[in-house]
Design a protein around this nucleic acid. Sequence first.
DNA 1: TGTTGGCACTCGAATGTAGCGAGTGCCAGT
DNA 2: ACTGGCACTCGCTACATTCGAGTGCCAACA
Lengths: 337, 337
Amino acid sequence: MALDDRKLEVLRAIVEDYVATQEPVGSRALVERHALGVSPATVRNDMAVLEDEGYIRQPHTSAGRVPTDRGYRLFVDRLSKVKPLSPAERRAIERFLIGAVDLDDVVHRSVRLLAQLTRQVAVVQYPSLSRSAVRHLELVPVSTTRLLLVMITDTGRVEQRIVELPGPTPVEDITELRGAINNKLAGIKLVDTPPLVQELVEHRSDPVTNAVAVVLLETLVERHEERVALAGTANLARFNSLDLAGSLRPILEALEEEVILLKLFDEVQAGSTRVRIGDENEVADLRTTSVVSTGYGPGSTVVGGLGVLGPTRMDYPSTIATVRAVARYVGDLLAQH
Amino acid sequence: MALDDRKLEVLRAIVEDYVATQEPVGSRALVERHALGVSPATVRNDMAVLEDEGYIRQPHTSAGRVPTDRGYRLFVDRLSKVKPLSPAERRAIERFLIGAVDLDDVVHRSVRLLAQLTRQVAVVQYPSLSRSAVRHLELVPVSTTRLLLVMITDTGRVEQRIVELPGPTPVEDITELRGAINNKLAGIKLVDTPPLVQELVEHRSDPVTNAVAVVLLETLVERHEERVALAGTANLARFNSLDLAGSLRPILEALEEEVILLKLFDEVQAGSTRVRIGDENEVADLRTTSVVSTGYGPGSTVVGGLGVLGPTRMDYPSTIATVRAVARYVGDLLAQH
DNA sequence: TGTTGGCACTCGAATGTAGCGAGTGCCAGT
DNA sequence: ACTGGCACTCGCTACATTCGAGTGCCAACA
């Protein structure tokens, strides 16, 4: 049986009320608060259908209805209009991000901002190394047999590693090698660098170049250096006894695993916001939560992801709007920088 | 009335049992589990005295006794011997820390290790900039009017800032300036650098030096760049309903404030472990918790602090032992590096 | 066919009552 | 100074009762 307009309207009303009040919503309350133009009895019939179709359910026999994951999904896909941010929120975003001095600062500020605006857990991925390009590589001698390799990317990220040299090496050699490396790699996307490093090694074939190249390749390739910032875990405690009953601990544990957090941004795209509701999450411990994520970057490119995580019972329209807005601002900021 | 030996013994038994079972302990249970050599009635008399003195209290009239903050304090000061780590724990520490590749890695690994071993919230402060010395300063041109200033400290920490130059500047000038700066500052404790930078500016007095010096001073002086790593917040959820009843949220909030975390390490010293129990904490939101902290650094110097935070009902002897052990290992690691 | 009012029914939450038992404080005896 | 005994307290659990929100169903109606 297809759902007619009124049934959809009923579903929307249920979702909105439940999100607002956090309590199962009954037929009477529904017709009182929403101008549905029909009696409670009619609404009850509609609700029975919605329940058959799996969009809502009853916690107990004599309670009101609560949306299921599937109900939220329908709501997000077809029933909700993205709620535009209030001017106050826009101002808050600008004020908060305007003073950022470097990349670290941008990331920290945005993650806190996001947590504050959505009152949920916020996650911001640092601009992904693999999606950036090399701006500059520096080799700094720290002793006669040790170098510090510093890589700066066009997104402002800085990575450093220690290189152990095979033996004492004059500074001039280092300087020369640095020149060669920069010539080869500057401006190149990180993904495209490894073959160039190989070329370099083959062409020069001396032990120092070799030693540097090994570490350099690690730095360029190793994805495990992807980093994320987290904020607002305290907001989880707000729900403790209700939606997330008892599952708080596993959620906190999951949030401490960088690997898991990175998964949230697996396939992010700029502009398109992704919503994963409850069971749609791959990570088992996060099945009681919803994740709203999107990509960000200068212009329409994507250098990283950001998003928020909260109970499935969240205010999707505002959350989505906020996540998008913050992503756009952060992207702009990176473009200027 | 002074507390005689047996009364102290009773207090110790109460603390140990309560920590182990998490339930108020009564006189009968006490004589059964500990070889006190006296009857429950005698113990009751002792307990009455201990209660008068404020070392223990009764949650309700007909319940057993629970240590107060003051009781824990006495226990920690006079009654507990530091429990040596098990070989398994020592091995775990070594294995966990051995593979660390850089400073970031060391800090991350140790904070996770600490959280895991103590099953509590762990906090590790990055080696404090103010306590380190300059190893090397690098100036990397990223465009004709922009430099990246990279500072490497002897603890392995790397700080970077962007410098906007007053106008296009030839690379040679930059190289020369770098040499001058390094001559002046290499090996100097950060605290002692500002006057030297002043000298440099006065001596050279050109606009480029000026621009660099401004940023350099910021980097050298600004304490707000102190950073901390956090792990094990999920462990807080274990206590939720019991010790920390309801206060979980404010605690999580406090833990998100770097400023507050840094306060935990305000006056840390190497070797001496500091224990702050309940009310002894300055931060109001942490009054239901205890903090065990110590300093670490190569040799007997201190470059940062680390510690754990948990409910006042914690296993102090093991926690203290673990915190100390990890601090020592991390210190050693920094010494090698 | 869709909508409505009415009504019996269900069941969770709240409230009240009673008994149990762990634990105490006190006291008299050794 | 210690101990056994005893009356007393009071939180906890179990059980019974009530209350009411909310439902499903049905017959009536447009």
